[in-house]
Design a protein around this nucleic acid. Structure first.
Lengths: 226, 226
DNA sequence: GCAAAAGTGTTCCAGATACACCCATGT
DNA sequence: ACATGGGTGTATCTGGAACACTTTTGC
């Protein structure tokens, strides 16, 4: 893929990577995807999906490509988070990491392992394994940003499947915020946003009244509210 | 300063720069600092202060260093904004720019020109000159972020000198928001933040009642409010 | 005494919060 | 008929918005 000839510059250049914090809601918890490293440095430890920027590739494209290569997941919400560049953050060479965070509904999860031999798995945020590089710091910032955005955007809709009930939506908010919410107030607030609409269908499950099914009017957009 | 020997890598590496959008309030307007380019590309056009990251230098250090080298300004509030990396954003080579924005009170402005021959000047945001690279885009994002932060942080205090009156503070908010504010409500809100305190001194100016003088309790910190 | 900016409280409104019961279904 | 989650309305609270006059100074 790469030629062997060296690339030369008059001044030293850092390497540039992208890393992605991919969140989903699984098993009633906020979880994120990690990849177990097969090689040094940090061999055996877990790390965020990511990799080196190609020389003519857009940053966001790199993040999406690495995510797809390593996990098979594509077409999801992705937003730049922060750029990390402590001089010693990678022992091999100077590496600047442009980080992104991404959200996906749990039905889009491709359980397939990565193309290469590395293991990939989901981890709840409060039981993370030992992490390579400064990835623990990146994850902490991503979680903080995600929670902050709940308050003033419709970002939580990115966790929902194409069709969902208000109870499912409320459950997502409750998991993210770590608190119970009042059902009536929650519904009032969500409907007042004007961002979701009924499909007309019903969702039947168990011995109780069927739930109305909703969809997001503009599923790709994250609206800033208030 | 640099040796002449080339640096070689197995894979191509982009260059990494930092650029800084430095805001201040001057002449009743929000203004920012630009530097006129002396060399190609974009020779003669205006650009943000910034430059190449040194190989063992922290990103934020690079931003501060370039700002000080080119403008003599240091010790001010600085925050990472976004990382720009379109493959064609610099015609010379692939350049990733980690951008920052900075705020300063107008009394800290060192009018000295940069050490080299380039011109530096302040420009109001609505009368910007022709800008090099994608710097117009960077400035637009910085302004948007600054205005958004007014609502939920004490970032505006970074424009104030060590001592100031509530009228001066209100004027800063009015300039940033582009609207007039009610004096009583404004004072109530500012004092309720608990972030400023009276110095006990008075500020006399003109034929009218002297104003009480305030200072920020914790001038380095930007608090998130509400 | 007059011009000019500093300083000060109360009413009103809107949006958020608290709260309890009936509905539709499967077994 | 009963167990289960789905669905609904009103009263209260709170923080923001609107609003006008008195105070202190320099000339």
């Amino acid at each position: 893929m790469y030629q062997n000839a060296p690339y030369t510059y008059r001044h030293p250049h850092p390497a540039v990577t992208t890393d992605v914090v991919l969140f989903t809601i699984r098993e009633g918890e906020l979880q994120l995807l990690l990849i177990q490293r097969a090689n040094a440095p940090y061999s055996g430890m877990w790390a965020l999906p990511g990799g080196f920027l190609e020389i003519n590739e857009d940053l966001e494209h790199c993040a999406k490509r690495e995510l797809e290569e390593e996990t098979g997941i594509s077409g999801i919400y992705l937003e730049q988070l922060y750029t990390f560049g402590r001089p010693d953050r990678d022992p091999r060479e100077r590496v600047i990491s442009v980080t992104y965070y991404a959200l996906t509904p749990s039905d889009r999860l491709t359980p397939k392992a990565a193309s290469d031999a590395k293991a990939t798995d989901w981890f709840p945020l409060n039981t993370l394994p030992a992490l390579a590089f400064d990835h623990a710091e990146i994850i902490a910032l991503a979680q903080q940003r995600l929670i902050a955005k709940l308050d003033y955007s419709t970002i939580a809709f990115q966790f929902m499947e194409a069709q969902f009930t208000l109870s499912q939506l409320q459950s997502v908010y409750e998991i993210l915020l770590g608190t119970r919410l009042d059902k009536r107030n929650f519904r009032k607030r969500m409907l007042a946003l004007g961002q979701i609409e009924e499909t007309g269908e019903q969702h039947r499950t168990g011995n109780h009244r069927p739930a109305r099914v909703y969809r997001v009017k503009n599923p790709k957009r994250v609206e800033i509210i208030k």
